[in-house]
């Protein structure tokens, strides 16, 4: 498993510098034909099969749906780390990591905010994740 390369998970960028305030922002996509929203951006709409997916900038704040503090994580990532699902106001759910010293501070449904820190690097020195969320 450790020799698995992590390919780009999207043909289009999912972490962009917002030209309006020069801060990073996540970006999903929205189908111009049926309105389906997907994160990370995809080339084809899983709903209507249209190929007119347009960039959808996402809010920086979302709600913590659930989380776990991995003592023993996926072996291709290493650990420990805190993983979570974040529900975004745009209606997409994102799997990511949480940047917090004490996981005891976390509760379901609390607001969390995008934080672009040093990339998460696995045991092989490869970049795994470019962003986290934090309370």
């Amino acid at each position: 498993m450790s020799d698995v390369e992590i390919p780009p998970l999207s043909d289009q960028p999912y972490l962009i510098d917002d030209p309006e305030d020069d801060r990073p922002r996540l970006q999903g996509c929205e189908c111009a034909d049926c309105g389906k929203r997907v994160f990370p951006p995809v080339a084809v709409c899983p709903e209507c099969l249209g190929e007119n997916m347009e960039p959808l900038p996402l809010s920086r704040e979302g709600l913590l749906y659930s989380y776990t503090a991995f003592e023993q994580g996926a072996r291709w990532v290493g650990g420990p780390y805190i993983a979570a699902y974040i529900d975004m106001p745009e209606g997409v759910r994102i799997f990511t990591h949480i940047d917090v010293d004490d996981p005891g501070r976390l509760t379901c449904d609390m607001p969390v905010i995008l934080r672009v820190t040093e990339p998460v690097v696995n045991a092989d020195g490869r970049e795994v994740l470019k962003f986290k969320f934090a309370p």
């Binding site: 991995f70 996926a74 291709w76 650990g79 799997f95 990591h97 795994v128």
Partner: peptide
């Protein structure tokens, strides 16, 4: 890819 093992 980002670390969601089944136990998590």
């Amino acid at each position: 890819a980002y670390g969601l093992a089944m136990h998590g």
